[in-house]
Amino acid sequence: MHIKETDTLLFIGDSITDAGRDRTDSASLGSGYVHEIAQTLRARTGTGPGPAIINKGLNGNRVYDLESRWTTDVIDHRPTVVTVKIGINDTWRRYDRGLISPVDEFETCLDRLLAETVRTLSARLVVITPFLLPVTSDQEDWYEDLSPRTDAVLRAALGNGADVVRADLVLRRAAEEREAAELAPDGVHPSPLGHRLIADAWLAVVDSVTPNPPS
C-alpha cells in the first residue's frame, strides 16, 4: 500500500535511526535513512506537504530503553505507521561492556511493545532487522549473539503482523560488491550509501503497490 499524505510516520530506534538529529527541533530527522525516506516521499507529493514524519531515534538505545519511553515517544503522537529499528546495541554492549541482554527477554520486550502499539493505535507496524558488516576480526564473534537476536526480531514482527525490512540481507548483498567499510565504516553505523540502501529497502516494502516478497 502507498503511504498517504494524511499518514503520520514515526521512526524509533537507536543511533542508526537518530543519525545526528537535533533533539531540540521536533522537525529534525537527522541525516540518515529517515531523512532519505522523507525526501523521497515529499518529492512525490510535489507542492503538497507530504506525510508527517517524526524521528524518535536515540543513540545508544537498547530495547529496554525504547520501552521506558514508548508512551511519550510513540503512543502519544498517534502515528499511523510505526517503524522500529533495534537490536544491535543489545548485542554490542555484550562485547564492549559485558552488559548482557538475554535474547528471550529481548524478544519478550519487543513483542510487548509491538502488541501494545497494535492494541492502542491500530497502527501499521514496520520492523527493520538489525545488521552487522564486520570490519574487524573481533566483530565476527558478534554473530553468536546477533543471529539469534535477529531471529527473535523476525518472530516478534511476524507475531504482530508487522512488515519486515531485511536490512541485514540488503547490506550483506551490497557488501558482496563493495567493501564493508564503504557501507558502514565501523561495521554498525551506515555511511550515506548504507542509509540510502536502507531507505530504498523500506520504500520497497512499505510504499509498494505490489505484495511484499517473502523474507
Rank of each mutant, 00 (worst) to 15 (best):
E5T: 14
T6D: 13
D7Q: 04
D7F: 06
D7M: 03
T8S: 10
L9Q: 10
L10R: 09
I12Q: 01
G13T: 10
D14N: 13
T17V: 15
A19S: 15
R21T: 04
T24L: 13
D25W: 08
A27M: 01
A27V: 00
S28M: 02
L29R: 09
G30D: 08
G30R: 10
H35N: 14
E36S: 09
A38P: 02
T40Q: 11
T40G: 00
R42I: 03
G46Q: 02
T47D: 14
P49N: 14
P49M: 02
G50D: 05
G50T: 03
P51N: 01
I54G: 06
G60F: 02
V63D: 05
L66I: 09
S68N: 13
S68F: 00
R69H: 07
R69T: 10
T71I: 13
T72N: 11
T72L: 07
I75C: 02
D76M: 11
P79Q: 01
V81P: 00
V82T: 10
V82M: 02
I88V: 14
N89G: 04
R94I: 00
Y95N: 06
Y95Q: 08
G98D: 06
I100K: 12
P102D: 07
P102I: 07
V103D: 04
V103T: 14
E105C: 00
E107P: 02
E107V: 06
T108M: 12
C109L: 01
D111R: 13
L114M: 08
T117E: 05
V118H: 13
V118T: 14
V118D: 13
V118I: 11
L121T: 05
L121H: 06
A123P: 03
I128G: 07
I128P: 00
T129A: 03
T129H: 08
P130S: 13
P130N: 11
P130I: 03
F131K: 04
L133V: 04
V135L: 06
V135K: 04
D138C: 00
Q139K: 03
Q139D: 11
Q139S: 10
E140T: 12
E140N: 09
D141T: 12
Y143L: 05
Y143P: 01
S147R: 14
S147T: 15
S147Q: 13
D151S: 12
A152H: 06
A157R: 00
A157I: 02
L158G: 12
L158T: 15
L158A: 15
L158C: 08
G159K: 07
N160L: 07
D163G: 12
V164F: 05
V165T: 03
V165F: 07
V165N: 04
L169N: 05
L171S: 11
A175D: 05
E176T: 07
E177Y: 13
E177W: 11
R178C: 01
A180K: 10
A181Y: 00
E182Q: 13
A184E: 05
D186S: 08
D186C: 08
D186Q: 11
G187N: 05
V188Q: 03
H189T: 09
S191H: 03
L193A: 14
H195C: 01
H195L: 04
R196M: 05
R196C: 00
A199G: 14
W202T: 02
A204M: 02
V205I: 15
V206Y: 07
S208Y: 07
P211H: 10
N212F: 01
P213A: 11
P214G: 15
P214F: 15
P214H: 14
S215N: 11
